[in-house]
Every structure is written in structure tokens, then in C-alpha cells.
Amino acid sequence: MTYAIETEGLTKVFKKAWSKKEFRAVDGVSLRVERGATYGLLGPNGAGKTTFVKMLLSCSHPTAGLAKVFGMDTRTRPARQPIGYLPENHRFPTYMTGRGMLDFYAALSGMDSGSRKKRIPELLDIVGLNQWGNTRLGKYSKGMLQRVGLAQALMHEPLLLVLDEPSDGVDPVGRRQIRDILHALEQKGVTIFLNSHLLVEVELFCRDVAIIQNGKVALEGRVQELTAGSGYTVEAEGVPEQLATELRTRAKSFSQNNGSLAVLFGDRETANQAVDLLRAERCDIEKLGRVNSTLEEVFMRTVSGK
């Protein structure tokens, strides 16, 4: 099977010129992103996410390992043909108009003049900037630059979209608009690789996720699976002190207030046993349910190592 992105032991070591000290920004990362997947790359600042993305795009050369895009070595020019990229902290030339910028980057992607002329108004319309096409980018707001940047990444109808903080500086309406555009692309089978600090955004949009820490993959999997099965919550009233103490020893978290008890158990069996004990003492069960982790909790647990 050919993956949209496939890396094998991808490593990037930076050496200081004078002291010869080494810094392993990316350390043997092996990832596989299926075609058509929506994949989120997470990690704390300095974890190696941007260096990883730069190696995918051949902006940075790997020290060791291999990266492939649709089976092609990323160091070769054809591997970059199916990629649309929106960098973080982009600096689009301010002397260009929105239309001119789209035309320039599309030409660099190899699109002929006719196709560019047809595609530019379509994309300006999709990102809601059709009134701004002839305005210089220097007059655009941050949110508008993000949207025109996204349009730039979509000009040559890429099969793989690599987005670095796409919602950065975008207002909630614009953020929703970007998410809708990405959902439409997902429906068309475009693979979307999202590098974002906004965990909620990744959780809402991505099917798969990898968390990078200290240059290594600390956790990888389906968002649904990683956030599932965090525990079972039981809330009851009129709990005797002796039983409360007993339940506390079995709980992941525990809170008590005026005889009202809220306990989180790690597994279903312990929760069932707790319910049996509470019912045996004729306590009133107020709430019983399964609690999923948020991606933020998964992220925090992963990066803190707890």
C-alpha cells in the first residue's frame, strides 16, 4: 500500500558550528499517513513538529532516514507536485495583490496561464475574498492572509494538504469557514496533514493524531480511540463516611460535599462494584456514566509522562 506520507527513522540533527554540540530535533520518527486521512501532528513548542514538516517539504534535509509522499522520495521535485502547503508565520510578498500572489505560486506549481486564470476567481470566492483580489497583501488582515494562504495551497488541486496552524489569527466565523473548506476537501479524498496548537481544532477535525515530544513520536493513533475509555463516573448522595473512605481508595478522582459524592473509576468493573456497595447501603445514585478524555487530557498526560 502506498501511503500519502510515510517516514522511516526520519532524523534531523543540528550541530553547532563551533562547539560541535548536537541537537536532535527529530529523532527516528516513523509515521504512516493513509491516503484520504485527516491527520493531526501535536507536540509542545520545540518538540520537532516544524522540522518534521520541513523535511517532508524538502526545506530541510534529513540527517538520516527517509520521507516519502505518495511513494516518492521527498528530496525529489515530483514528490512536491501533489502537495499544497500553508506555512506558519508565512510572509507573503506584500507588493503582490491577492490575485497576483495566487498566480505566482500556482505558476511555480507548474499550472499554465489558462488554468490559473480560471481557478483564481473560484478560489477567491471559496475563501470569501473575491472583493479583495486586486488589493495588495500589505492591506490584508491576519485572518485574510490565512485565507488567501489557504487558497494558494489549493490552487493546483493538491492531493496532500499540509497546514501549519491554519486558523492562526482567524476569527471564529473564518475558522468555521476554513473547517468547512477542509471538510469538503476531505470528502473529495484529499489527505490533510494538520500541524496545530489548537487541540480542540485537531480533535474536531482529525481522524488520526500523533504527539511528538523531544523529537520522537510519544503517542499515535485514532483520535476516537485515544480519547475513549478514560473512566466511569458515579455520583451518589447520602453516602456513609466509612463507604466513602472505602470508595476513595479505589477511585481515580474523588470529591465529597455535604454527603454528596462524585467518584471517577478507571474501569467498568470497579464502577459496578461501587454501585453494588452504594445500593447495599441504600444510597441514591444521582449519575452514572462513561467519561471520555478530551484530546487535551491525552496530550497533557503524554507530554507530562503521567
Binding site: K54, L57, S58, C59, R77, P78, R80, Q81, I83, Y85, P87, N89, H90, R91, F92, P93, Y105, L108, S109, G110, Q152, V162
Partner: peptide
């Protein structure tokens, strides 16, 4: 070569 500009240029299918 300005950061934010060069990355985008290099990501295009141009040598």
C-alpha cells in the same frame, strides 16, 4: 530567503 517566504518557495515543485 526571508523566513516564511523561502519555505513556501521550496515547497513548490521547482528545483
Amino acid at each position: 530567503f526571508e523566513p516564511g517566504r523561502i519555505e513556501l518557495l521550496l515547497s513548490k515543485p521547482v528545483e
